[in-house]
């Protein structure tokens, strides 16, 4: 028995080796390197020797107004996108259940934006946000307000640039949340609704007492996933606004990439990555705790 157990443990270890090697080479090692580099003043193409500076980079980050703005933007993004996208996705998923036929078609259509690469979506939305009267978004708004809308240049307007990014991100992100919630929704046993109806629960009471509690785990999962994605906001702003106008659309990840590859500040970029990693780690741990709790109850 014992040797059997040992043997299968050995086999398990061997079989998981490729994955472990991959994780070590592409995740653990770079992260470790980032932690070490974040304690130096390393610069690419610099003739000066790299020096160890301790926590200097982190201290600089905290006092850098551009970084603070980026962090604030990420927080605003999460604070808007997570609740709005969740409610929207839940609404769509519930509506989808009510569609008598063509449910799959609607599901595919709503999921389509998730499949397209963000770079492609960003280019399309740059066209949608085109300035002047002929820009599609300007036209739609003008039509909606019966001509009361003054054409604006969304992506170069300090007030509108970030909301414009948020809108496109919602459109792109809602499909994934919707599909996860929709799948969970169709797994809720029909008898629960029948029992609730017989117990005199109306449509709203059924939603509140059956649907929502039954969707607890998928809701926690998708909300925290969206939160993590909110802190990784990058492609849209990199392609559409470069963080501008001013720092209106600057985000942490954009800042990290720019300082590493545009400014060659490897030390600073590493410190920023480590901070981002810690934020995402915290959210993931919270997610595990909440999901475990949900599973136990």
């Amino acid at each position: 028995m014992r040797s059997d157990g040992n043997q299968s443990a050995l086999a398990g270890l061997l079989l998981s080796m490729p994955a472990f090697v991959g994780l070590a080479a592409f995740v653990a090692m770079p992260f470790l390197a980032a932690v070490i580099l974040s304690c130096t003043d390393a610069q690419l193409n610099s003739p000066l020797a790299m020096r160890f500076v301790g926590t200097e980079q982190y201290r600089r980050l905290l006092s850098d107004p551009m970084i603070r703005r980026a962090l604030a933007n990420n927080l605003v993004f999460a604070a808007v996108v997570v609740p709005v996208q969740t409610v929207l996705a839940l609404l769509l998923a519930v509506l989808l259940e009510l569609v008598p036929s063509g449910k799959r078609l609607f599901r595919v259509l709503l999921f389509l934006p998730v499949v397209f690469p963000m770079s492609l979506i960003a280019v399309v939305w740059i066209l949608l946000y085109a300035p002047g009267e002929t820009g599609p978004m300007n036209r739609v708004l003008s039509w909606l307000t019966l001509g009361g809308w003054e054409p604006r240049d969304f992506l170069r307007d300090p007030q509108l640039a970030f909301p414009a990014i948020i809108l496109l991100s919602l459109w792109q992100g809602v499909g994934l949340q919707m599909v996860i919630l929709s799948a969970a929704l169709s797994r809720i046993p029909k008898e629960l609704y029948e029992a609730a109806a017989i117990d005199r629960a109306g449509a709203f009471a059924q939603f509140r007492h059956i649907t929502l509690p039954q969707l607890r785990n998928p809701l926690v999962f998708t909300m925290l996933l969206t939160t993590i994605l909110a802190f990784r906001l990058f492609e849209q702003v990199r392609i559409m606004t470069h963080g501008g106008p001013g720092d209106a659309t600057r985000t942490l990840l954009l800042q990290a990439v720019e300082s590493a590859f545009d400014l060659q500040q490897i030390g600073e970029a590493s410190a920023l990555s480590v901070v981002l990693f810690c934020i995402v780690l915290c959210i993931s741990v919270l997610q595990q705790v909440l999901l475990d709790e949900g599973r136990r109850s």
């Binding site: 046993p189 008898e191 609730a196 109806a197 509690p213």
Partner: peptide, 20 residues
């Protein structure tokens, strides 16, 4: 509708509310 018939039902698989 079922809500207004004042019937009670026991289902084959019980249909207990699992989260309660």
């Amino acid at each position: 509708p079922p809500q207004d018939r004042n019937v009670a039902m026991v289902f084959q698989n019980y249909a207990l509310y699992p989260h309660m």
